[in-house]
Every structure is written in C-alpha cells, then in structure tokens.
Design a protein around this nucleic acid. Sequence first.
DNA 1: ACATGTAGTTTCGTTTCGATACTATTCGTA
DNA 2: TACGAATAGTATCGAAACGAAACTACATGT
Lengths: 202, 202
Amino acid sequence: MSSKITSTDEIAELLVYLGRAARGVDTGSNLTSAQWTALRFFARANGISRTPSAFASFHATTRGTASQTIKSLLAKGYLARCDAADDKRSVRYDLTDAGTQVMCGDPLRELSDAIHRLDAGLKSALRLALPALVGQLADIRNTVAFGTCGDCRHFSGGGATGYCACVAAELAPADLGRLCISFAAIQDRTLVLGGADKRKTT
Amino acid sequence: MSSKITSTDEIAELLVYLGRAARGVDTGSNLTSAQWTALRFFARANGISRTPSAFASFHATTRGTASQTIKSLLAKGYLARCDAADDKRSVRYDLTDAGTQVMCGDPLRELSDAIHRLDAGLKSALRLALPALVGQLADIRNTVAFGTCGDCRHFSGGGATGYCACVAAELAPADLGRLCISFAAIQDRTLVLGGADKRKTT
DNA sequence: ACATGTAGTTTCGTTTCGATACTATTCGTA
DNA sequence: TACGAATAGTATCGAAACGAAACTACATGT
C-alpha cells in the first residue's frame, strides 16, 4: 500500500485539529465541552430545530446522550422546556435569560477572533468552502446536513429577507443565519471573489 | 448584549461541526476516536515529533491521557517503542506494519473524499486558509501551532525538496507533508487564485 | 552541585458516551 | 378503524476518555 500524504488528507487533518483545538478553555462558566456545544446549538438553531433529536443529529451522537446533556443544562437553568408543537411527542428547548447571558463567555470566541484576523479573501473562501464541504460529506453518507437558512437550497431572495421553500414562508433577517434541520446544501458552488472574477471551469 | 450571529461565528461553528462529524464510523477495526487520532498523528508526524508530549500538545490533552492512548495502541500492536534520541528522557513511537495496514481503514477517509469532490478553487482556498487559521489561533493563545514542513516559516526552496532552517537540514520530499512540532506559521498569507500556490515572501 | 524544568508513566475519581430498553405518540396501510 | 411500524424523548448501565496529581528519570542552567 502507499503511505503517500496528499494535499486532501492534509486538509482533512487540519479540520479535525481545528475542531478539537476550538474547544478552548472554559473561563469560569463551568460548562463541559458537550454542554457548550448544546447551548450553542440551541442558541443558533431555528424554531423547528431546537429539539433533542435535532441536536443529537447535529452533534453526531445518540438521542440518549443528547438528552443527558440537555438535562444538565436544564438543571443549571440555561435551558427551558417549551412544549409548543402540534406533535405531542416533540419537545422544544429554548435558552433562558441566564443561558443567553452565559453565552457571552463562549470559549469558541477565540476561534472566531482567529477567523476575524484572517485575510479577507481567505475568510470569504472559508465562508463558501465549509458549507459546500458539509454538503458533500452528507451526500457521501446519505445523511442530512446542517447549515444556515441563507446557505440553503430552499432559500431564495437576495435582500435583507428571503423566502424559504421548505417552511413555505418569508424568513426574518435574523433567521438567515440560523441552523435548520431541513437544510439542503447547494452542491455546485464555485469560488468567485469580489471584483476579479477568477472562475474555475471544468 | 447582542445575540447577533456574524459570518465569522458561522465559520467557527462549521469548523467545530466538521471536526466532530469527521470522526465517521469505524468499520471493523475496533479503534476508538482517540486511538484513531493518535495513530493518524504518529503516521503523519516527522521523526522529531513522534513523541507522547508532541501528541498531547497536538491533541490538546494532558501527557497522562496521551500516554494512555499510546499504551492501548502498543497493546494492539499498531505502535512500537523506538528509543533513538540523544535525549534519554525522550521516547519515539513508530507505526508497525500492522499499524500501517490498519490505517487503510481510517474513518477520516470519508472526509477526504468529500474534500476531493470540492470545486478545485474551494479546495486550494482551504489549503491556504486552514494553516493560516491554525497560526492565528496559536498566536492568540500564545501556544505552539502544528503544521506541515511545506507550510512552515523555517522552510525554503521551491522544488521537490527544500531546506528546513529549524533542523538545519535538507528535507526529503516525503517530509514536506509531515507534521512537525517545531512548526511556525506564515501569518501574512493572502488568497491568490490562478496557477500554483503563491507564497508571500515577507 | 543543586535547584529547576522537562519527558514519560501510573493511579484515581469524574465525566462522557454508546448501547439498550422503555413509554408515548404518530403514521401508514390494509 | 385497527393495528403494526416508525419516531420522539427518556432512563439505566458499563466502558472509555479525561484531567489532576504524584512519581521517576534525565537535562539544563546559574
């Protein structure tokens, strides 16, 4: 066999490395890595996605584990149960005020700062490449992907608001950046930068 | 406070999501996620970096935990102890033939495949942006970064081989893609599309 | 030469996690 | 309509991962 290390493999490794390094250091809030991920998810997911099952799918774990993590956040008073669906099996969890408060200390802030310091071209390239990658991975695995409404195939409209073909409703500006469980990736994106239009054909 | 979700935050979340999703499913090899990360590290790190301490630093964990993970891989016969340094405290671990063999079933292959399917422009953008991001993050935290010799500030030379100012030696072509604990990131990279990757020369 | 620092390992208690089983509700279909 | 299958949520249990601390051996530096 060949032990050749390709450029593709290097990228994959860097992604794993960054994902792990991004956990950062919790300064005082006393939340574990899994709890931060859950709190972040419920802070950023839209209404129909703030359920234990959706979080389990997002976090690539089982519903049982997801339920446990949520329970611990309930006990800390950062999440609140909020039954408000037609499906009586389903439960929705929302952030409490305390939960919103504690999100200010999100250790992921360090990674955000690092991204912020990047050259603008690199940053917008990431903004295109990562959602596309999520879509490709979901495609290979035949699973659902996660992404924000603004990146979704169901979305149309260019201004501050837009239309979601999935929920069949106009989206508020705030929802454009929210995670949705019904997300469908746009597969054929190419890198197009600002003015200079260097488009890859093929 | 503001709960505004910026584009930067979205990128950070996608990185965490991909890092977690990349673990994939282990098909038969019976290695845990931590064990795969360790085996991958020792497969891809250069000679001076294949130590427990270097792996602990890479994996953002303690030396104790790293030692445990390595021990489990020793027991499975995938790593071999290989004392061959001037520093008698230091220990080097190399992959055995069985270890090299089992790497063929690396669950990270799925993510590599997904990257491979990306538009070429997006892919080369990732190839530039991710090392730069690793450098920025290490800079913010005042810690050492990890990267491959080909991306390193100590590296010079353009052809198939090159010179490493850190080890003060010529590098074999195979080493260009290897992880090094003495890695120093190039901070001021910008995105240049078109031909081959362009390197900023200070 | 002696204090200080580093590399590696072990032990211990806590936390995380996946597998499994269980209840309640919804869906599909005959 | 009735009933089996699927789905949402939860609880329990054992295995693994993890961090903290303590310890040995070696290196460094003043």
